[in-house]
């Protein structure tokens, strides 16, 4: 395509965290980039842009998906949820509170992707065992914690019925 066309944008309507956003995007823009840089929802992080690390995971219609492997134009008509959308106006959600209580984060960069993934897990399976938690977590790389306290936090949140 020609250079002029290259920078053509198209209008999309995105539904993110219950809010409607109308904006112009280039078709090639990744959902992660649009969430972060157009909508200012910077909790979603970008770590590899090939779907491996899981830092950019968001919920699309309630299911965890990689926002680096989805174009923003494709998200039209879907309900996208980021960590901002899972966070109460004040304080922490029960899962977030369990993460703090169990020291389930260090640098915090992978944490939002892990929170949305574990939130989805607990909605599908409110009482997972450790193996189930680890399997669901295995698509999110954390370089700091060695995962143990994350697993503990998720199991504790499940036990408390969140």
């Amino acid at each position: 395509m020609s250079q002029a066309e290259a920078r053509q944008t198209q209008r999309v309507v995105l539904q993110v965290n219950g809010q409607r956003h109308e904006l112009d995007v280039e078709p090639r823009w990744l959902l992660a980039d649009v969430l972060r840089h157009q909508l200012g929802l910077t909790a979603t992080h970008v770590g590899c842009e090939q779907g491996v690390c899981g830092a950019c995971t968001v919920l699309v219609d309630g299911k965890p998906e990689r926002s680096c492997l989805m174009l923003a134009v494709q998200a039209e008509g879907c309900e996208v949820t980021t960590v901002e959308g899972l966070t109460p106006a004040a304080g922490l959600s029960p899962l977030q509170a369990a993460f703090q209580q169990h020291h389930a984060l260090q640098c915090g960069f992978c944490t939002p992707g892990i929170l949305v993934t574990m939130e989805a897990l607990l909605r599908e399976n409110p009482h997972p065992d450790e193996a189930t938690v680890r399997e669901a977590l295995s698509g999110n790389v954390c370089r700091c914690t060695g995962y143990q306290f994350i697993v503990d936090a998720v199991l504790a949140a499940a036990k408390e019925g969140r």
Binding site: R36, T42, A43, T82, V83, T87, Q100, Q101, H103, L115
Partner: peptide, 19 residues
């Protein structure tokens, strides 16, 4: 002691370089 840093990190309000 649970960490004082955690709330902003968990709420997604921490500001990293690309933010």
């Amino acid at each position: 002691v649970t960490r004082l840093e955690d709330a902003r990190l968990l709420r997604g309000q921490a500001r990293y370089l690309d933010d």
